[in-house]
Amino acid sequence: MGFQTVKFYQTGTFTVGNRLLAPDERSVQAGEMRSNSISSGHRACQGCGEALGARYAIDAAMAESNGQLIAANATGCLEVFSTPYPESSWQVPWIHSLFGNAPAVATGIAAALKVKGKHDVRVVAQGGDGGTTDIGFGCLSGMFERNDDVLYICYDNEAYMNTGVQRSSATPPAARTATTMPVGNEPGNVFGQGKNLPEIAMAHGIPYVATATVADLRDLEYKVRKAMKIRGARYIQIFVPCPLGWGTASDATILMARLAKETGTFPVFEAEYGEVTGVLKIRNKLPVEEYLKPQKRFAHLFGKHAHPEMIARLQAIADRNIRKYGLLQDQES
């Protein structure tokens, strides 16, 4: 899986860097020569998980492609905060067309590169969860089905943040959004809806599907680099907490991603040709409350008018993930 199991912070490491590792084993992010694909001065909120996840992912893709990379971007926070005229944050050739067409634009780029014989130049497409699971879903599915040579990266922050935190099909049950308010008998987003896009991607039988979080940099880089070694359609969904939309502290972004993984709420795995080939195990299993409690979008589940039954249902979802993917250390995955 993701990275070799190591024992210490110096060599085993969950940290970004490691002065004791051989240079080729060090993370892209630790390098002074990392491409910093998204320059400083972008207008993402304080503690933005997407800004972080995007730099991690694109820098890794840049490293793997020797800087021969083109990115297509769906409309959304990432696009808006990175390219408001007259300033662009991007250091890679980059195009934004529409909200729902990034995968198709990327297909077009890949086709152009192929026909021009530029086999060393690679293409990534990227978007938020709304642009991916909802409005861009048709184009994404088409790109998957044709097995176009595109790595699609979804930065999943579980709602439409750019427009003011509305529900997407990636919004979890019970979460408060501007369109799933915490009112009524079952406050927040309803249970039993939503799309599991990684699994839908797997169902297309594409060469590579993976999930990752901004809390596991080495795993994330490993997956991006692995994906970049493969030709054909690839999909990586990166869990990127949103301080603004979730009502969390700006310094809790990585913590939230870590808790999502450690509670089983967000299973971190990889799959090849539709089969799960690896999971990132939970280190210390935690109850979902640990993950939910710091988030204002779940505040209505706690306190005076608490909804323990809804928490129990969220726990059941996490438990199902744990069972299904074998997320515990001693489980077969």
């Binding site: 912070y9 490491t13 940290t15 970004v16 860097g17 490691n18 002065r19 993370s27 992010q29 630790a30 002074e32 910093n36 998204i38 320059s39 400083s40 972008h42 993402a44 503690g47 933005c48 998980g49 800004a51 972080l52 730099r55 991690y56 940099l217 972004t253 990585i254």
Partner: peptide, 19 residues
């Protein structure tokens, strides 16, 4: 101990690694 975490986790690339 120069684990590079601050350098890595900054969403704004606002950390310089001095070597």
């Amino acid at each position: 101990f120069e684990c590079d975490n601050c350098y890595g986790v900054c969403p704004d690339n606002a950390v310089i690694k001095l070597g």
